[in-house]
Design a binder for these strands. Sequence first.
DNA 1: CGATTCGTTGACTGTACTCAAAATCGGTGG
DNA 2: CCACCGATTTTGAGTACAGTCAACGAATCG
Lengths: 236, 236
Amino acid sequence: MASSNICSDCAVRDAALCGSLDDVELRALNSIGERRIYPRGSTIIWAGDESVICANLLSGMLKLATSTPDGREQIVGLLYPADFVGRPYAEEADHTVEALTDVELCIFPRRQFERVLDDHIRMERLLLQRTLTALQEARARMLMLARKSASEKVADFLLEMAAKVGASGCRPTPGGPLTFDLPLTRGQMADVLGLTIETVSRQLTRLKGAGIITLPGMRAVTISDRAALQAIAAAA
Amino acid sequence: MASSNICSDCAVRDAALCGSLDDVELRALNSIGERRIYPRGSTIIWAGDESVICANLLSGMLKLATSTPDGREQIVGLLYPADFVGRPYAEEADHTVEALTDVELCIFPRRQFERVLDDHIRMERLLLQRTLTALQEARARMLMLARKSASEKVADFLLEMAAKVGASGCRPTPGGPLTFDLPLTRGQMADVLGLTIETVSRQLTRLKGAGIITLPGMRAVTISDRAALQAIAAAA
DNA sequence: CGATTCGTTGACTGTACTCAAAATCGGTGG
DNA sequence: CCACCGATTTTGAGTACAGTCAACGAATCG
């Protein structure tokens, strides 16, 4: 049976929460888990719905968003492969989870996942540490959203993306220009940064004009002067 | 010895993390803990310093803040009695922790606290749940900081304060006007809301002018029209 | 090839920030 | 009790940054 050892070929086996489990434990988790693929743009969890699933993100990117009653949206987190999805120990889902790219998830029914958590201290401990880190990140983002200017936000975001996605990007010479594809549309970038589409676009063209970046394609970015970008992100 | 049963007269015994412990466990925690009092305005933890302590907040209020290199500050969390303070499993303190009022803390050396955590699953589980809740709160605050107007922010804040501190405030008739003291200065409110002092002040006078609140003293607030305040917080 | 989504650019507006001054509160000491 | 001082708050005038509205260009897809 394929499902009896889906973990063996898991791309994020070591990086994800399950990395803490031994083979016996893994089989237990295996029996309640299920791989599923969602196309880009699909909503995996709706905010306010009953919290029925948890998952590990195997590949692709997810966004985590909340919105005001009148429709203003804010992306409160971006999830990368091996990140944990969902909210154990709560009856309701806090945020809407949507696929930014095609994604592959390893899904567990929430209740059963909680039981595994209860039975496997190492896994729970890992989740605690991840959650503490996520909290720290969220708070850092609060500073950015509340106190940074549009140019700082955009520069900051480009650097973060360079760090996260840029690993796979192409860098001709070390320290030299780095090119990668943004996994987000301008509108999504705006939702992350607490700006509007127009402002994001303008800031990007400003950076292009200053010779700090180039925009070879709609989604592609090349960072040609990383130091300048860092200077902007830190201060002005 | 007083220290051998400091927990017995603890005001937050049931609400705090330690509420999960039985008497034997409590004695263990007792032996590494120590009560300490800090005057208002004192800094308990500096961001970036080595993370050496964790604590439970017994009484008073703490602020949790980060700032940009050039000095812009943002309060990323407010802590109330029974809340947990500090960052286990990290070498460095994430945020600066400062006393907004005189506070009483029950302090533990971080390393030793982590050991207690490791040995007492119930406590670790509680901490996980608290952290998940804090993460949810932080993300909700991200939405507010990034997407809400000044008037929404102030209205929101007043309602939150009414809920948190207002319990002890005086409410002549149920559903009627509620009066309480703000534990924060205008400047601190501005730091919470991502605004300036002047904007906070102006919004308060606007609310006063609209007959929704009155400001009997420098720190006191009376909410006379809660429904109107909620309407502002939700929408405009 | 047209339709649609996404991105850029422009002109204008408005909200919140900055700078500055006056008013109020709280405490101290004559 | 009152005068005085510093800190906090309020108010005012002017500015700037980012938002809004609108049009246009570019890319993608059927």
